[in-house]
Amino acid sequence: MRISRDKLNKLAHTVADALAEIDQVDFMEDRNTIRQEARKALEMLLNEETKIDQAARLKISSQRKIIQEGTQEWDILYRKYYNDEVRRLGI
């Protein structure tokens, strides 16, 4: 899933703000550094999700039979292959 840069920044701000509100959490760095690290972590997760999505789609497209996206068969195969990739990566 592609998320715009602005939305990713907003999400990172939300994460940093939520962490700041937890009494048991003490920042060892300034809030901006925490926000930047949260943004990096989110970007890495989204990049992994994109790779998993592409791998699942590639497996479907490599089937001998042509399977149209949006059909029930395609959805079932996509979920299966997506979950297989997630397990393979240990996520």
Rank of each mutant, 00 (worst) to 15 (best):
I76P: 05
E43D: 05
I3E: 09
I52R: 00
V86C: 08
Q72H: 14
W74T: 03
V86D: 06
L8Q: 01
V86F: 06
L89T: 11
T33G: 05
K65C: 10
S61K: 10
E85S: 04
E69K: 09
L11Y: 07
V15I: 12
E85Y: 04
L8V: 09
N83H: 13
D75I: 10
L89Q: 14
M28T: 12
R5N: 12
E43C: 01
N32V: 14
W74D: 01
E37G: 03
K80I: 13
L58K: 06
R87P: 10
Q72N: 15
N47T: 10
E73P: 02
E69P: 05
L58S: 08
I3R: 11
D17G: 10
N9M: 14
W74Q: 03
Q54F: 01
G90I: 03
G90A: 04
E49Y: 02
E43T: 05
L89D: 13
R64W: 12
D6A: 11
L19H: 02
K59C: 02
N32C: 10
L45T: 09
E37L: 07
D84C: 07
Q36A: 09
K7R: 15
Q72T: 15
Y78E: 03
E73L: 09
I3D: 04
E49C: 05
N32D: 13
K7I: 09
R31M: 07
E69Y: 05
L77M: 10
I67W: 01
E69Q: 07
M44S: 11
Y81S: 00
K10E: 13
Q36M: 08
E49H: 04
T33M: 09
K80S: 10
D53T: 08
T33C: 04
Q24P: 01
Q54C: 04
E85M: 07
A16H: 01
K7C: 09
I60S: 01
A41Y: 06
I91F: 14
V15C: 06
E29K: 11
M1S: 09
I76F: 13
E43L: 07
Q63A: 11
E49Q: 05
D23L: 11
H13I: 15
E69I: 09
A38W: 01
L42W: 00
R79A: 11
I67Y: 01
A56K: 00
L77I: 05
